[in-house]
Simulated assay, not measured.
Amino acid sequence: MAVLKPYRGSYYLWNYIPSTPAAALFAALFALSTCYIIWRTIKTRALFCIAFVIGGLLEVIGYCARAAAKDKTDQLMPYVIQNIVILVAPALFAASVYMVLGRLIRSLNAENLSVVPVRWLTKIFVCGDIISFVVQGTGGGVMVTGDSMKTGESIILGGLFVQIVIFGLFAVTAAIFHTRLRRQPTEASLASSTWASTMVMLYIVSALIMVRSIFRVVEYIMGNDGYPLKNEWTLYVFDAVLMFGVMVVFAWRFPGGIVPRKNKARDPEVSVEL
């Protein structure tokens, strides 16, 4: 029988013995959904979805490490590996979501309806996402030293706040564009019946990632003695289930059909062929 062991002295990395069956289940679910998205990405040559694929692979690695940690609760590396990769994976999901909106706007010839210039839209949000990713990863790296756990947690918290702000601004940008497009439809939007469902996908995915990020902020603010870190079910309900939902919804309305095309005397555009 597995026993909860201290990492150093009386300090415990875990407040419970991680459930191997639960972690193995989600490792399998993320593996299956990631394989499907890899297949769709290759089939449609949607290279902008590679970040999403990497995020799925990180989820698989994270839950595999978590499943293996049951008898290693006194070891730092299994704890840090599962903690970091599960923590940063949604930032990669978000990067693909940002790119989808930019490509969709171009496909509908609706650049003038975007509150942020389309040539900057993807760059701004992806750069913000990269900052969030790097900050969270740095915080996880600091935690690896073992002597700076609190400092690492504070850095991670800062990265999560950046992620929430960037994602909130993205949601507002998407909503404004959607509202304007309904009021001033373009010929391309009238000719396509799929762009609206793509927007719905973006909204659902964004909401799921936002809820998960808020949960993570609450988790780190409450600290090691808080309810979330003392009860494993919170991780699965407010992170694993939500991120698996992100993968399912993204797969449902996979944006690989937004493909490049040449437009007369202009730069390459995209058209919706979903």
Rank of each mutant, 00 (worst) to 15 (best):
L121P: 10
L121Y: 03
I124T: 02
I130E: 01
I131V: 12
V134P: 01
V134L: 03
V134W: 00
V135Y: 08
G137T: 00
G137F: 04
T138M: 06
T138K: 01
T138D: 00
G139E: 02
G139F: 14
G139Y: 14
M143L: 11
V144N: 03
G146Q: 01
G146H: 11
D147S: 04
D147Y: 01
S148W: 12
T151L: 13
G152T: 01
S154P: 09
S154E: 01
I155A: 00
G158I: 04
G158A: 03
F161Q: 13
V162M: 13
V162H: 13
V165S: 09
I166M: 14
F167N: 15
L169K: 13
L169M: 14
A171Q: 12
V172L: 14
V172E: 09
V172S: 10
A175S: 08
F177R: 10
H178K: 04
R180F: 10
L181F: 05
L181R: 12
R183V: 08
Q184K: 13
Q184I: 12
Q184V: 06
P185N: 05
E187Y: 05
L190W: 15
L190E: 07
A191E: 09
S192Y: 06
T194F: 08
S197H: 12
M199H: 11
M199C: 11
V200Q: 08
V200E: 06
L202P: 11
L202A: 03
Y203F: 09
I204P: 02
V205T: 09
R212Q: 08
S213D: 13
S213C: 15
I214M: 08
I214V: 14
